[in-house]
Design a protein around this nucleic acid. Structure first.
Lengths: 343, 343
DNA sequence: CTGAAAGCGCTTACAG
DNA sequence: CTGAAAGCGCTTACAG
């Protein structure tokens, strides 16, 4: 029993009904549906009218069976932790991608591959051709899934630069290094000289590149690098708190902190407060992301804005190009300093 | 050109390849694929072995073309605001539904109908049979989309009780009224008698029923109802802050606050702090949801836990039953008081 | 229990 | 520019 029959729905009109209604062949209807090439204006008109009258909607399954395309895209999240779901950036990204795809009338399939079993199941599903391409989101890049899919010939765009040499995986990312440079220069301009940093995990581009930008600017400014001022975090709030406590312990006179994510910065604020430091008077704090977390703190965070709207729309644009046969591409988008109260 | 040819993928094996490999007809392979009824153990075995050897995966488009089912489900978000995306509960729900469906090997299509144009496009897409059913999530229930889809015969499960009379729309919800009762009883047990409340919007079940529970318990306890103690909020943080300020203004000696969401409670905490009230000493504060927001505050929020994991798994269960031809159902799940520092 | 055959709704060379 | 026809990969009565 088809679903159309359940619930009292009538059998929907097919291309055959439209053809009869328009007085043309089914081939002609199909041509109108697929761009209207080699169709006379009169036929075009008649078919469009018949489509309107019948309420015809193409049956995607029949079309996909022939074209071999599914006209859908997967949004693949590979994250063992629940952390990513708590990350406000994720929401913006998912929403942005859904809407950018909707503009092309392409549905987004959400896939979560947290465990190895799920990764296998999803790999099979994807390589069987059930989606035309994949938007890949994972915090720890160098993800084996990315290479597996790429090797299987699946069009793929990662969010953030995949770590690993010349992997020929397309990606869209904010300019992490540049963002870090803006922030550290800002802290220097405030007269701070004992600037600590809490990095992201060093197997992520955000971890490596933001630390790189920090080092570069200090070196340019002639400020001696002090490794005791560097703590490696994990992008979690609790991690940020622990790192800040450690830094204060090692370098009690630090006067600024560049934290590689707003969520960690929030944890750092807690640690600073507990240690009796005023922000920004004693310690200026800069975050990264400009996530909702940045305005939820007291004081509100000075941070680096990542252009999530553009990141998602660019991911979709590059993926559709890839599906259309174009070559892989990398897109780096500029960041921006957002000044609030914390620095 | 099929996608399999792009990127150097070989044409995937079909049921025909499996049949040849197993030495049976395609009909027999299909029977094995669809439950193995009327198939001899020997044939069963041979087919399974052939499937393994060939790496066969069913072509869903061909199957759907015949069965009229898509074997996929839509997760439909109707929300004009971005607010819902910022709501941590949404994440948990989306994640839970994705995983519950994955266990049945059913992909989830994310659909966002923020504008009227999007609603029309998505309605067409859904009623054309591209998904077998819909998980509907909207904060303001009484959503016209729900009725439109129901009238079109689309299997549908709402998150939260749809407002409106006997709409015969299946839903899964936490027991809002009962949750509110727990909280207000708890505040009474603390010795508080001037208990204010900040409600959700009164066109939402969470708004109406949590207020109902509040009133019931106070009436049972013989505490006179004072309408000045009731403020209508909007589930936003800023709204919570404004409402709390208003209540303090109207009833300066209030000694407790039952707030219908953690996010609003967070705003209320800010207002209380600014007014110089200590929490919980001067004013005990109870939230609702047990969202991540509840532990992000200082002091951490005493709140009512909504069982999001079960809500999502029940939504999926009910939807699959509906698709299977069962009658609509309503599922109400129990809530639980979570005691922390704020009350 | 099993095979041969029809058919799901569409697209796409192929003739004209 | 247009129609008739083949065929995409599967499922499902229908005979046996």
């Amino acid at each position: 029993m088809t679903m159309q029959q359940t619930g009292g729905r009538r059998r929907p009109p097919t291309i055959h009904d439209v053809a009869r209604e328009a007085g043309v062949s089914r081939g002609t209807v199909s041509r109108v549906l697929n761009g209207g090439h080699y169709v006379s204006p009169a036929a075009q008109e008649a078919v469009n009218a018949a489509i309107r009258r019948t309420g015809y909607v193409v049956n995607r399954h029949a079309r996909s069976l022939i074209t071999g395309r599914s006209d859908s895209v997967g949004f693949l999240l590979t994250e063992p932790q629940e952390r990513f779901f708590e990350d406000p950036n994720f929401n913006v990204l998912l929403r942005g991608c859904t809407q950018a795809l909707a503009a092309h009338d392409i549905p987004l399939l959400l896939m979560i591959a947290g465990t190895e079993a799920e990764r296998r199941r999803i790999t099979r599903y994807i390589t069987a051709g059930h989606v035309d391409g994949v938007l890949l989101v994972s915090s720890h890049s160098g993800d084996p899934l990315a290479e597996r899919l790429r090797d299987a010939g699946v069009p793929l765009v990662a969010c953030g630069k995949p770590i690993g040499q010349a992997s020929r995986i397309s990606y869209v990312a904010a300019d992490d290094r540049d963002g870090a440079r803006y922030m550290v220069r800002h802290l220097l301009s405030l007269g701070r000289r004992r600037i600590g940093t809490i990095t992201g995990p060093l197997d992520t581009p955000g971890g490596v590149d933001r630390l790189g930008g920090y080092r570069e600017v200090l070196a340019e400014a002639g400020v001696a690098l002090d490794e005791r001022l560097v703590a490696t975090g994990d992008y979690s709030r609790a991690g940020g708190e622990a790192c800040a406590a450690r830094l204060l312990d090692r370098v009690p006179d630090l006067d600024a902190l560049f934290v590689a994510s707003d969520l960690m910065a929030r944890g750092a604020l807690t640690a600073l407060q507990r240690a009796g430091r005023r922000v920004p008077e004693d310690v200026a704090v800069g975050g990264f992301d400009d996530s909702p977390a940045a305005t939820a703190t007291e004081p509100a965070l000075t941070t680096i804005r990542q252009p999530w709207d553009r990141i998602s729309s660019e991911m979709v644009r590059v993926l559709l190009a890839l599906i259309g046969g174009e070559d892989p591409a990398a897109v780096i988008l500029p960041t921006e300093l957002v000044r609030r109260a914390s620095a």
